[in-house]
Amino acid sequence: MDTDAMKRLALLCRIDMSEEELETLRAEMEHILGYVEKVSELAPAERALEVGVHHNVMREDGTPRASGMYTEALLSAAPAREGDFIRVKKIL
């Protein structure tokens, strides 16, 4: 990974980092990725072909609790609000 790739990755992560930190992180990540690459050592025949024991569990539409019960508690945690809305800087 070159410096530009690291910068793009940090942008994707939405984390502001100094070039110095990205440089340290690059070395660490290469070291870690070098280790985890051993998952590819297992030959295809030895691997279970079926993937995905985890699956989404949906519940029926309904009203599990009274509407508005948590509105104030949740909104009051937001750094900026306007009435019953969370306020953010303009998006477009």
Binding site: L33, V39, V53
Partner: peptide, 29 residues
């Protein structure tokens, strides 16, 4: 930060199959 960077990397296009999918196969094994 390190783990978010790693996670974003292994999930990014082009690396997803080599890392995340393979890891899930080995997980099932």
């Amino acid at each position: 930060r390190r783990r978010i960077m790693l996670g974003t990397y292994v999930l990014s296009a082009g690396y997803y199959d080599a890392y995340y999918n393979k890891a899930n196969e080995v997980r099932e094994a």
